[in-house]
Amino acid sequence: MTTSARRLAWLGLGIIVIGIVVGIAWPSAAESRSEHVRRLALEFRCVDCEGLSVAESATASAAEQRRDIGIRLDRGESDEQIRAAYVESFGENVLLRPASNGIGLLVWALPIAVVLLGGVGVFVALRRWSRQPRLVATDADDALVAELRTPVDDD
């Protein structure tokens, strides 16, 4: 494939990708009430279960909690207010996604820091390796090789 044809092909791909990004980012229709309830319910831990969310659990307490979330939304409460209300009653461990303030910040920040640090380390190492000068023959080396190549006088 010629260079210009290749460039054109990749350019075309780039345009398609931009189109995809636009398509994803385009503001979508507002979520329905049931979608909203489900989205919030996914954040709360069902108390009768082993780590399942309120959205996924089939227990009566989870069903009641989903109903309650709907009632609160109808009352006009915001997501934050609903979260705060449940944390108030059940404690912080009702949230399946740890809050990003306080000690919870660590659990979000540490992995990002580790991966970034590791990435920087790999990048630096790769740069260092590719910067190391390749050995180039000097004139002295050429002379040595020529000397060795001259046939030795036989006695």
Binding site: L42, E43, R45, G51, S53, G91, E92, N93, V94, L95, L96, R97, P98, A99, I103, G104, L106, V107, W108, L110, P111, V114, V115
Partner: peptide
């Protein structure tokens, strides 16, 4: 591995350090 390990033991650590626990679940 770090994410999974940290998320799994974090409730343990939080409870040990400050007494009250928190949950780290599927959304995280």
């Amino acid at each position: 591995a770090f994410v999974v390990l940290l998320g799994t033991v974090f409730p343990l650590l939080a409870e040990a350090i400050r007494g009250s626990t928190l949950s780290v679940g599927a959304p995280y």
